[in-house]
Amino acid sequence: MPYAEVGADVRLFYTDDHGTGAGDGPPLLLVHGWGTDSHQWSWHIDALAARHRVIAVDLRGHGYSSVPETGNTPRMMAEDLHALLGHLDLPQVVAVGHSMGGQVVSILAVEHPERVRALVTLDPGYGMTDRIAGGFPQMIAALRGPHAHAAAEQIDEWCTNAATPAVIRRWHKRRLHGMPPHVLVQAFEAMFTAPGAIGVRPVSDDYLARRRCPVLSIWADPGRAAWEAGLLKDPESKVVCWEGSSHRLHEERPAEFVQVLEGWLGRLDRL
């Protein structure tokens, strides 16, 4: 499997899949969430590769990619992706991100708009209200403590519900416990409380309003879905809510996710 040198201390692992019918759809860049890796897309790659070139990447600090001591933040991750696309000679992609990956691809779209034809964000890690954000300092303190993986597992409990199969719960728990603790805390803090974080309102509103490309956003929470709908600029943007799903919605409903994505991309292609 390929690796790409994207900086002095960062080497990214990625897969590059081309199905037999690939080429008639735009290339896709799949970006995982906090504390996981590109295996998160194993439920989707085969179906998507039937029409697309599919790049699935392990972000810095995650999976098989390099683990720098510092800089494990969504902004640096977005810069890594910009460098990866240059390495692959891919001028433009549809960038798909789950959770923290939704932040990363949104930053990529704002800071390097020429790289992103369209965005797809899945229960993204932004738009948190003050009520939710009030608990973040305590979570960050626990991630800095001697039992970081137990703290991460407690945070992850918010990501599942009765709709989540046990195999998905177990899969994510195992990956969290394999994560370097300093990456977990650096990434979480950079998403929500550090200077420049875009995860909490109203900073989320101001930054995300700068996205000019079409956005497909799929949420589990109808309130946050309605909130994001008010920020989208391109008329082809679309917000979908799968109420009753958990934060792992695209893993719980992989075939439906692929169907919604392909239908939306098909409409963009006809424009």
Rank of each mutant, 00 (worst) to 15 (best):
residue 119 L to G: 00
residue 23 G to N: 08
residue 144 R to A: 11
residue 178 G to S: 14
residue 189 E to M: 06
residue 238 K to W: 07
residue 93 V to Q: 06
residue 1 M to S: 14
residue 156 D to H: 06
residue 160 T to F: 11
residue 135 G to P: 06
residue 4 A to G: 12
residue 267 R to E: 14
residue 64 Y to T: 10
residue 155 I to C: 03
residue 28 L to Q: 10
residue 151 A to N: 04
residue 205 D to Q: 10
residue 137 P to E: 09
residue 112 H to L: 06
residue 85 L to C: 07
residue 19 G to T: 07
residue 73 T to C: 10
residue 73 T to G: 08
residue 214 P to T: 08
residue 85 L to M: 13
residue 144 R to M: 12
residue 191 M to C: 15
residue 181 P to Y: 05
residue 22 A to F: 11
residue 237 S to Y: 04
residue 14 Y to V: 07
residue 65 S to N: 14
residue 162 A to V: 07
residue 71 G to Y: 09
residue 153 E to N: 09
residue 206 D to E: 15
residue 189 E to A: 15
residue 255 A to P: 02
residue 124 P to I: 01
residue 89 D to G: 09
residue 179 M to G: 01
residue 248 R to T: 04
residue 104 V to K: 00
residue 199 G to K: 02
residue 117 R to P: 02
residue 52 H to C: 10
residue 216 L to Q: 03
residue 238 K to G: 04
residue 192 F to I: 09
residue 248 R to I: 01
residue 104 V to D: 00
residue 170 R to Q: 12
residue 9 D to I: 10
residue 50 A to S: 15
residue 41 W to K: 01
residue 143 L to F: 10
residue 254 P to N: 09
residue 215 V to Q: 04
residue 233 K to D: 12
residue 76 M to D: 12
residue 251 E to N: 11
residue 127 G to W: 00
residue 126 Y to G: 06
residue 69 E to Q: 14
residue 60 R to M: 15
residue 238 K to Q: 15
residue 242 W to P: 05
residue 45 I to A: 10
residue 154 Q to C: 05
residue 53 R to E: 12
residue 113 P to C: 09
residue 76 M to K: 08
residue 65 S to W: 13
residue 40 Q to I: 02
residue 225 A to E: 02
residue 48 L to Q: 13
residue 137 P to T: 12
residue 182 H to G: 08
residue 146 P to R: 05
residue 126 Y to T: 02
residue 154 Q to A: 14
residue 77 M to H: 04
residue 12 L to G: 06
residue 99 S to R: 01
residue 81 L to S: 12
residue 242 W to Y: 07
residue 111 E to M: 06
residue 204 S to P: 10
residue 7 G to E: 06
residue 231 L to E: 03
residue 237 S to N: 10
residue 34 W to H: 02
residue 144 R to Q: 14
residue 11 R to H: 13
residue 99 S to F: 04
residue 187 A to P: 01
residue 167 V to H: 11
residue 155 I to R: 00
residue 261 L to D: 00
residue 39 H to V: 12
residue 14 Y to P: 03
residue 37 D to E: 09
residue 258 V to S: 13
residue 63 G to Q: 09
residue 226 A to W: 05
residue 116 V to Q: 01
residue 44 H to I: 08
residue 26 P to K: 04
